[in-house]
Every structure is written in structure tokens, then in C-alpha cells.
Design a protein around this nucleic acid. Structure first.
Lengths: 349, 349
DNA sequence: CTGTTAGCGCTTTCAC
DNA sequence: GTGAAAGCGCTAACAG
């Protein structure tokens, strides 16, 4: 069943070297030989042994994609996009997940298991420790980061600061004057993280407009639905006069909306909310958001990797533009003038 | 940097054969030799070349997991569970996705790309065509299906019929008498699919109770939120007297609840609804559901595969029990007697 | 218990 | 344009 290169060579009446060249489409093979080889291979159902090929060349044809967890919109779609692109380039995708436990730093990125097995790595939004960075670099293969820039590796990510500007600009244009920003955990607001960059974008616009942008209006919590929920409650306590919220992600926005509803506030009548991502978590809500396309980013990462492997050079940082997608969760503020004057209903619970 | 078995052998003052044995923990090696080898390997930072090992043994140490798409609760969690288990067994997980396009039959399962690369396959709920089944079987490695039983391969799946009984029994116990079943596409209701089995479970209980279980009470649509939405509208048109709905999946239940709310019906006051899965799509809803654990199923599939690879035998079909998780979406029917008499409010849109 | 040696299936000089 | 032959790094008899 499993025929070898020798079988093909014998059948085609040529040497194994010629079969090897012909099968890989190298030139320096006469059309006649090539045809004979291809014909013989077809008849025998011959497929090159990737294993033997790898041993001989040192290239495995395999790319590893590392994700924090598979069950998450961004990672899953980056993986999807990367895997498709890699597959059509004739490569297999191996996967590694770091931790199923959200928010816990005890990742278990088993980098060693990748040694000598792969030709490149795509790291999807997993913040690497210095130790891990060294380990990954020690694999001796090119690495591309997606989502989080993670030096010294090249990266593909959303133009986060710009996304923050787009979102905030949208709210300002609608007439909002007191605009809050809610985001993931405090740790995430370091300047080089997506959350931190989106914060910068928010600030950019508010500064430009001469609007308030103090720490009062920034709330950090966890990067999930529950986090958004809690963040917005904290926000309302601090600043009951807020009329619009920019959430660093759609999940956060979703949690925020739940909390607002519990609080007795309507969206967008009483308060506007905008997110980032465009995952269609709940298509019925029609959240206004800044859309990004992780599958496309995964495909781009794959391309970059293949390019490096092919000996090319690639930009250190590839930024992908987000796009405003207006939904039903943002509107003009109800009564800009009297906003502070009319007290809101107290929480129902 | 990349030292070979010969380097280690030289350093340890033994032959490569001894190094090979020692590294793999085979017995027939003196403690003294073993220690010397391990020591030398450590000093050199030596890692066995999986490629060379594969070429020599015929085993690649790699398992492929095939999913319809990565961005879906069940698949993602099976993958997560399987990958973890495989990793701790020292194996790498390769992935293949079939189609990003839901509901389209033009899968592109590139089975050929797996030839000679893997030791086994886990197929996650991807219905295989006969052709594909032949191709996969032609890989010459063991296969385990998860989610959908898919002969002739062994499978791990939810005890779907039982899950249907659990859900329906719960509704009956609450006092419901007119209980509908809504599910995925018509194609899915063939007896051997999850949807079909859950239908059987529904019927089992209703027959047992002498309650109505005709085709009027069964609505098929698509296996997603939109599908649940549309299905429930169709149902209410056909049977305005229904007081409880068993949805074949939580996503379907979610869509159904949206439709009910649009229709002006409250859950669970006016109508009860129960699903299957226990994905926490929206933790705020607290959907009553029959929970399954796909990560655990993925781990089980991995174990079975490893067992077969190790020369063992495994059961043709492994059924995992679902567990009722009461939430806030089921309750006693409001007024069992007068249900038919009091007409409901018409749709608001 | 340990070493020798012949592969595993392909690629790649180096000659012709 | 083609072939012979030497690896790639490891495992698995087979001797000893």
C-alpha cells in the first residue's frame, strides 16, 4: 500500500533522484521523464513521505499555532484563518493551548514538545513570560505574534489605538461629552497591550476635543462578560453623569449592557455603548462596534511566516485597520444640558 | 546546538543503541549506563529528533483532530480536551477544519495531507461522506468520532436519547402536557444523529405518559440562534397551546427565547424552555439545560485512540451521560386547565 | 547488559 | 538532463 520513491523510480524507469526532482516540480528534468514519473506515481498512489522528507531536508512542513484556549472567539478565528492558509500552502498545523483557566498566569506552554517538529510558530495573543520568550526563540524557527505585539517577534494586530479613536470619535460626533472607558484587568493596561492602546486612542480624542479624560472615567475589570458587568456598576457609582461608554471588547460591552439593564438604564436612550471586535455574540443586540477580522489576521500571519521561511524579510509590525459598524446601541445623548440635573433611577437590585 | 544521538553516545561513552534505550526508558539498561546517558543528554541539551524517530519506527507521535470549524463551542472544547490529554501523553495535535461555511456540504477535508503524518484521527462531529469515510479509513490509522457516531469508527458521544428523556421528563414533572421539540435541519433528524436521538427521547417520555407527540409538535430549522428563533415562530403558529419547548441545543433555545420575547410571551411564566449543552452562552439567562462536557469527551477520545495505538481494543460506542441543570427558564405551566381557552397576545411585530 | 549494523524514505552533491 | 551514493538521526534485530 505504502509505495516508496524506489517503487516509482523502478516503474518509471528512472533513478530516485529524478523522481525526487520531478515530484517537487524542480526544473532540470525533461518533460518526458517528468511525465513518466507523474504517471507512475499516480498509478501507484504514491505520496511523498513527509517524515523522510523532513529528515532529509530539516523542514517538517508543520507550523505550530499557540493559543491561550480554543474556546474563544479571537483565538478560534485566527486559528481558522491560519490553518486554511497553511493548508493551501501544503502545510499541516499543529496546536498548543496554554491554559484553560482564564486569568491564571500558570500557563503551561510546553515549548519543548515542539523542538525539531515545526518550521514556524504563530502565537495568538498569549502574553509570553521572558522565560517562555527565550524558549520559543530557542526553537530556532521564525515566530509571528497575532493580537499582542510581543517583541522580539514580528506581529500582526489590530491598530488598537486607532480603533480607540474611531470608537470615541463616534461617540463624540453623536454629541456625548462624558465618555467612559472600561477594559480588561489592570495588568492589561500597560501601554503595549491592546487594552492600553485602545485607552490611548480614547484619550487622544478627548484631549483633542477638550473633554474630560481623567482616571475617574476609566474602569478596569476582567476581560469578559462578568467583567463588563462589574465595571459598569463601579462606573455608575463614580460617575452617574456618564452618557456613553467605550468598552474595550464586545464581551465587556455585553456585560455592561446587562448591568445597565439591571440598573434601570436603557441603551441607547439613557446611555450609549460601543465595543470592539464584531464577534456576533448576540446578533439580536446589534451592538455598535469597531470590527476586526481575526481570520484574516491569522491568514496574514501564516503568509508572513511562510515568507520568512522562504528567506524573505517581513515588517516588524503589521497593523490592521478596524472598521466602525454602527448598530443600535449608540445614539445622541438624551438631554445633554440637563444630564447632571436629572438624577437617575436607583438600581432595582 | 542541535546535538544528535551520537554526540550523547560519545559523551556518555556508550553506543547509540544504549542511548536510544536509555532515552526511551526501556529496560535492559544498567542503572549506571542510564545515568551516564541522561546526564550527558542534559548537559548537551539533547532532545530526540521526532523526525528521525518517526522514520525509523513508522510512528509520528502526532494525532489529527478534524473539526467542522474552530469557532464553535462543542468543537473547540473537544479539541481543548483532546489536545491536553495528547500533550500529556507526549503527542502533538494537528488540526484540520472542514468548512467555515455553516450548513454547506462542500467540506474540504483534505485527508491526503495527513497521509503518513499521523498515528490517529479524532473526528469531531463532522458528518463524513462515504467517499471521505473511505479516505479516512485509507489512512491506515485508528479513528475515533466524537459527537456523531460515524460507522465504522468507534465513537464517544452524549447519550442523546437519554438526554432527550431527561429534558422531557423534567417538563412533564413540572406539569406540562403540550411539549414541543425544536431541532436542527431536517437532515439532522435521521435516527443516528444527535438531533434524531434527542427526538426519540422526547417521544419515549410522551408515549410513556400518554401525551401528544405528533409531527405538529416537532419543528426543524437550523442548528443555531436564528434557527431557534424561526422554529419557535413556526411552532406558535401551528400550536398556540404549547406550554413548554425542548430545544435540541442551547443555541436553539436562545434563539427561541428571543422569538418568544418578541412574541410577547414570558419565560418561564408563559412558556418553559429547556436546552441541551450547558455552554454558558449567556450566563445571565440561566437556561435550564441538560449539560454535557465536550472537553471531557475529547479527553476520552484521546485515551481511546492511544489505547488502540497501543494495541488494545475499545468499545464501539461510548456514551456519556448528560445531567439536568435546572435554571430559570422552566416552571409549572401557568394555568394548565385554561391554557387553550385564554388566547395569547398577538405578536408585537 | 551492550555494541554493530542495516535499514526507514527521501534529498543532494558530484560526476557523467 | 540524469544517476550513484552519501547522508539526515534514529531504531531494531542480531550477536556477543
Amino acid at each position: 500500500m505504502a509505495s516508496t520513491i524506489e517503487d516509482v523510480a523502478a516503474r518509471a524507469g528512472v533513478s530516485t533522484a529524478t523522481v525526487s526532482r520531478a515530484m517537487r516540480g524542480l526544473d532540470g528534468v525533461s518533460k518526458r521523464s517528468r511525465d513518466k514519473v507523474l504517471e507512475a506515481a499516480r498509478e501507484l498512489g504514491y505520496v511523498v513521505s513527509p517524515t523522510a522528507q523532513a529528515l532529509a531536508t530539516g523542514h517538517t512542513g508543520m507550523i505550530a499555532v499557540i493559543v491561550p484556549t480554543f474556546n474563544e472567539w479571537f483565538s478560534a478565528n485566527v486559528l481558522e484563518g491560519a490553518q486554511r492558509r497553511l493548508q493551501s500552502a501544503g502545510r499541516l498545523t499543529a496546536v498548543l493551548s496554554a491554559s484553560a483557566v482564564r486569568g491564571r498566569p500558570d500557563y503551561d506552554v510546553d515549548v519543548v514538545s515542539l523542538r525539531r517538529r515545526i518550521d514556524g510558530v504563530v502565537n495568538v495573543s498569549l502574553p509570553l513570560t521572558d522565560e517562555e520568550t527565550r524558549e520559543v526563540a530557542g526553537l530556532g524557527v521564525p515566530v509571528i505574534a497575532v493580537g499582542n505585539p510581543s517583541p522580539p517577534f514580528a506581529s500582526v494586530s489590530l491598530a488598537d489605538r486607532e480603533a480607540g479613536r474611531i470608537a470615541t470619535r463616534h461617540l463624540v460626533n453623536l454629541g456625548h461629552r462624558v465618555i467612559a472607558y472600561i477594559s480588561g484587568s489592570r495588568d492589561e493596561l500597560e501601554p503595549n497591550t491592546p487594552g492600553g492602546q485602545r485607552l490611548e486612542g480614547w484619550r487622544d480624542v478627548l484631549v483633542e476635543e477638550g473633554l474630560e479624560h481623567g482616571p475617574d472615567l476609566v474602569v478596569n475589570s476582567f476581560f469578559d462578560v462578568r467583567g463588563g458587568h462589574d465595571a459598569v456598576l463601579e462606573l455608575l457609582e463614580r460617575r452617574p453623569d456618564v452618557t456613553a461608554v467605550f468598552a474595550a471588547a464586545d464581551m465587556i460591552a455585553t456585560g455592561a449592557m446587562v448591568a445597565l439593564s439591571e440598573y434601570g438604564l436603557r441603551v441607547p436612550e439613557d446611555i450609549s455603548i460601543i465595543g470592539v471586535d464584531g464577534d456576533d455574540t448576540d446578533p439580536w443586540v446589534q451592538l455598535t462596534t469597531v470590527v476586526q477580522d481575526p481570520a484574516e489576521m491569522g491568514a496574514m500571519a501564516a503568509d508572513l511566516l511562510l515568507q520568512i521561511i522562504g528567506g524573505g524579510a517581513v515588517p516588524e509590525m503589521t497593523l490592521v485597520h478596524g472598521r466602525l459598524r454602527p448598530g443600535r446601541t449608540t445614539a445622541r445623548p438624551r438631554d445633554p444640558e440637563a444630564a447632571d440635573a436629572s438624577p437617575r433611577r436607583p438600581p432595582r437590585r
